[in-house]
Design a protein around this nucleic acid. Structure first.
Lengths: 129, 129
DNA sequence: GGTTGACTTCGAGTGGGCTCCAACTGGAAG
DNA sequence: CTTCCAGTTGGAGCCCACTCGAAGTCAACC
């Protein structure tokens, strides 16, 4: 798993910085199977390749859309099984896409409530001088 | 605090049903100060008025937009202090509104990533027969 | 060659938001 | 009158997603 000095790769700290997670979280994600075991240098320190960083980036987007870690793990497991799981992975994303759209619809509705409230407060403030 | 039998009011179970929370959560919200102490009947059981239910409904919208319980409590405290906090409450909502808009923008971006992924999987599946 | 600082592992701790249990009470139906 | 059910309380427990502490290793710099 030693990936050699000529590959341009990042330490855990650099990778964390790059994807906007902490080093704690990066190690935890690996431990939880959200990330395949990362390559190490001769001293046993993690070296993140560009592919690793891209994968992490994708995870942050999934996470931000509210996908539970459990599902991200499932997705990672599928990805590790290669091309034969392409359909399953697409299905997983399509299902998630529907949930994200539903959440956006909810937010749109909730925003209306918020706006009505703000307007009501504005009117009330006006009335009380 | 006994609100009398002629008011049309709901038990904790009915109120929970109505607003889509559990009875546990309703009592917990009250305990946490998200809801002012609810009226009781002669047997000490909570009776939720329409105003209580409306308030709870608003809380569920705030919650669904990701407002932390801490902020909802702050809002509830302001509301209990009457008209002189109207401005503060409006400010709180306006600040929250900005966060909701930001979240929606994030979701829109993340949805693009998701769609690109789905498209990439579709193409890959096609290529592999 | 000593200090610094980023890394390593393992396991424990935290914060948020509920969720549930045990023991009890009181009103209503049969 | 008994059984049932929905309530009551206080406190414990749970799940999630990190977050951190302790103890140790190693490479780089002065």
């Amino acid at each position: 798993m030693d990936i050699g000095f000529r590959e341009k790769s990042l330490s855990v700290g650099e990778a964390a910085e790059r994807v906007g997670l902490t080093t704690y979280t990066l190690r935890w994600y690996e431990q939880e199977g959200l990330v395949a075991p990362v390559g190490r240098d001769s001293a046993g320190r993690r070296r993140y390749t560009e592919a690793d960083v891209n994968w992490l980036f994708l995870l942050t987007r999934l996470r931000r859309t509210g996908m539970p870690v459990r599902d991200m793990r499932r997705y990672a497991e599928l990805a590790r099984q290669g091309d034969r799981t392409l359909g399953a992975r697409r299905a997983l994303f399509e299902a998630h896409r529907v949930r994200v759209l539903a959440r956006m619809a909810d937010l749109t509705e909730d925003l209306k409530v918020l706006d009505h409230k703000i307007e009501a407060y504005r009117r009330a403030e006006e009335e009380l001088g």
